[in-house]
Amino acid sequence: MATLKEHLDACPLVTILRGVAPDEVMALGEALVDAGLRIIEVPLNSPDPFESIARLARGLGTRALIGAGTVMTAEDVARLAGAGGQLMVTPHADPALVAEAKRRGLIALPGFFTPAEAFALIGAGADGLKLFPAEAASPAVLKALRAVLPPALPVLPVGGITPATLAPWREAGAGGFGIGSALYRPGDDAAAVRMKAAGFIAALAS
Results as ranks from 00 to 15, higher is better:
residue 53 I to G: 05
residue 57 A to D: 06
residue 58 R to P: 05
residue 62 T to P: 05
residue 64 A to V: 02
residue 67 G to E: 08
residue 69 G to L: 04
residue 76 D to H: 15
residue 76 D to R: 08
residue 82 G to N: 14
residue 83 A to P: 13
residue 83 A to H: 11
residue 84 G to E: 10
residue 85 G to R: 12
residue 85 G to L: 10
residue 89 V to N: 09
residue 90 T to G: 08
residue 90 T to S: 15
residue 91 P to N: 06
residue 91 P to C: 11
residue 97 L to N: 08
residue 98 V to D: 08
residue 99 A to D: 10
residue 102 K to A: 14
residue 103 R to N: 15
residue 103 R to S: 15
residue 107 I to F: 06
residue 110 P to I: 05
residue 118 A to F: 01
residue 119 F to I: 09
residue 119 F to W: 09
residue 120 A to S: 13
residue 121 L to M: 11
residue 122 I to D: 06
residue 122 I to N: 00
residue 124 A to C: 13
residue 127 D to Q: 08
residue 133 P to H: 12
residue 135 E to V: 09
residue 138 S to L: 02
residue 138 S to F: 01
residue 139 P to C: 08
residue 141 V to G: 00
residue 142 L to P: 04
residue 144 A to F: 00
residue 144 A to Q: 09
residue 144 A to H: 00
residue 145 L to W: 14
residue 149 L to I: 09
residue 151 P to Y: 01
residue 151 P to W: 06
residue 154 P to I: 03
residue 156 L to Y: 08
residue 156 L to G: 02
residue 159 G to V: 06
residue 164 A to Y: 06
residue 168 P to N: 07
residue 168 P to V: 06
residue 169 W to I: 00
residue 170 R to Q: 14
residue 172 A to C: 07
residue 173 G to M: 12
residue 174 A to K: 05
residue 174 A to M: 04
residue 177 F to L: 06
residue 177 F to V: 02
residue 181 S to Y: 03
residue 183 L to K: 02
residue 187 G to K: 09
residue 188 D to W: 00
residue 191 A to N: 10
residue 193 V to D: 03
residue 193 V to S: 04
residue 195 M to G: 00
residue 195 M to V: 10
residue 196 K to Y: 01
